[in-house]
Computed example of a mutant assay.
Amino acid sequence: MKYDNPEDIIQITPLWEGERFPNGRPKVADDILRRMRRITLEEAWSPLWRRGYDFQFQGDFQTVHSDMTIVGRAVTAVFVPERPDLNDALLRYGNEDEGRKGFFNQWVIDSLVEDDVVVADLFDKVYKGTLVGGNLMTAISTRTKRGGAVVWGGMRDVQQVEKITNVNVYHRGIDPTPIRQVTMTGMNVPCRIGSAICLPGDVVMATPVGVLFIPPHLAELVVVLAEKSQVRDIFGFERLEQGVYTTADIDGDWSTALWQDFLQWFRTSDKAADYQSLEWDQELAEARERESGGSAGEGGPRA
């Protein structure tokens, strides 16, 4: 076995057709990450759910900065309880054959680049399961700029880490013990976090309500559909406050007249300025088809 193996990463992410890092990890565009930071978790979750991705969300985390969301590209790590023969063989292989330095968790942090997020399965181990502390979070801060870590396990040095304000840690508990009696069996492999699954290169959206793992080949679609939902809500709230429409009008299939009202608002309102890359031809065509007696497409009120 090899750690961080390009052939394996490419094999498990066949639907990604865009740019990749040298190790084969999908590289979702910076602009998609930027746009992802302004949508809500539910807006991003809905398109995944509707496409059969049922196990992308996990809650039940503690955080260092309770009101801070992080978005970035996943670097995954899978740990198991220590078995001496396996542990010694893999530690020796990584240090001697692959030229890595230190312990398993240090290998992961040393591989990070800007906008990365460590996603580590430590089998919910907190005592001696502290993946990161003050030193490693300083390294994560320096390397990722605005990333962090999602750990199905523990962390330490919280009073030090609280002072690092550009990154965040989502974890299961705090303990002063250093990491011990664990062995990393995979790096940039499929990773289970609670009941969710994360692959290398997934877009990690870690929010105060939980963590969502977005497959890279769906990231742009998720952003577009989420932005459409978001800007329609802005319009809908405004028109409801004005008494122009009922909640049934806004929540149901929009009529052609309502779409025309929305599109006029969309072109002229300052509130829609950040959404001007969105196109609405399909939604308007579906509304016209419904009114002429045809069947609506997938778009509907919400995607």
Rank of each mutant, 00 (worst) to 15 (best):
E289N: 09
G294C: 04
T177W: 13
D60L: 10
R83K: 13
K163S: 09
V132E: 02
K271H: 10
I174N: 04
G243T: 01
G134H: 05
V244Q: 11
I234L: 15
E227H: 07
R146D: 11
S269I: 12
I9P: 09
Y245V: 03
L41V: 14
R51K: 14
R156D: 02
H171A: 08
P47R: 07
N23S: 08
R25Y: 01
P176S: 13
R302S: 02
D253E: 10
V223F: 10
F79Q: 00
V204C: 09
Y53S: 04
G252T: 08
W259A: 01
T207D: 14
A219D: 00
N95Y: 03
A29E: 15
F104R: 03
I12N: 05
Q282W: 01
Q56S: 15
L221N: 10
G299F: 08
G173T: 04
V161S: 07
S46N: 09
Y275S: 03
I179E: 04
W265K: 10
T185P: 02
D8M: 08
F79Y: 14
Q230Y: 10
G236P: 05
R51F: 00
L225M: 14
G18E: 05
H217F: 13
K125S: 08
M68H: 12
Y93L: 08
V78D: 08
R25H: 06
R35E: 12
F266R: 09
G52N: 07
I109Y: 02
E82W: 05
L136I: 01
D274Q: 14
E238F: 00
A272S: 12
V209C: 02
H65V: 10
R156N: 11
V119F: 09
F213P: 03
D175N: 15
D202C: 09
T207R: 10
E114S: 11
R51L: 09
A219V: 06
L225F: 13
G299I: 10
N166Y: 01
D202N: 15
E238L: 13
L199H: 13
M68A: 02
G173F: 02
N5F: 06
D270A: 04
M187S: 05
Q62P: 00
G102L: 08
V113F: 01
D261W: 00
A257T: 06
R290L: 14
F104A: 11
A226W: 12
T144N: 06
C198L: 08
A303E: 13
T165M: 11
F237A: 10
R143A: 12
D67S: 14
G173R: 09
R100E: 14
F57S: 00
H65P: 12
F104Y: 13
V222K: 08
D88C: 05
G201F: 02
Q282K: 12
L136A: 10
F21V: 03
I250M: 05
L218D: 00
E7F: 06
K2Q: 14
E298P: 01
V80A: 13
T142F: 05
V158H: 01
Q242R: 14
E96C: 02
V113W: 04
F123D: 06
Q160K: 13
T268H: 09
D85T: 11
P190T: 03
S295L: 14
L278S: 08
L278P: 00
Q264L: 05
V151K: 01
